[in-house]
């Protein structure tokens, strides 16, 4: 089942605002480092730069969290096929209609034993 991606409109807006803030931050830090300015104005520029960079950092850390929760993909499910007589074991992708202890016919290795699904599982945690 294909999962539609969550709407990402707000993330784009935040990215644009963060980019503007980054430019503002860089510009004001440049101004603040200019030695010819009044110290009070320098402090003001420095404060604006710190606020701008704080916004950038916070908005990006928040967005990363959003992406982590957002992308959910269903896990891959596997069926373990075993022979009741010999040591034959096969792991295949789960197919519709598979269930544990379903008989799948004769074993291709020993030709006498019955093949059956011994277990159905998914490996690892679902990717998020």
């Amino acid at each position: 089942m294909s999962q539609p991606k969550p709407r990402s409109g707000s993330s784009i807006v935040i990215t644009i605002v963060a980019a503007v803030m980054a430019v503002v931050g860089l510009y004001t830090i440049g101004l603040a480092l200019n030695g010819n300015l009044d110290p009070t104005i320098q402090i003001l520029y420095f404060t604006i730069a710190v606020l701008a960079f704080t916004f950038v950092v916070l908005s990006f850390t928040r967005m990363r969290r959003g992406v982590r929760i957002g992308a959910f993909t269903p896990p891959k499910v596997l069926s373990v096929v075993k022979c009741g007589q010999c040591s034959f074991k096969q792991i295949k992708n789960f197919a519709l209609g598979d269930f544990v202890f379903k008989t799948l016919g004769k074993c291709t290795q020993c030709t006498t034993g019955d093949l059956s699904i011994n277990g159905i599982y998914t490996e690892g945690s679902p990717k998020k």
Binding site: P75, G119, I120, Y121, T122, E123, G124, P126
Partner: peptide, 12 residues
């Protein structure tokens, strides 16, 4: 979550 999603290998 594990209880209602496909059975994990370690649970099996």
């Amino acid at each position: 979550q594990e209880a209602i999603t496909p059975m994990k290998k370690e649970i099996m």
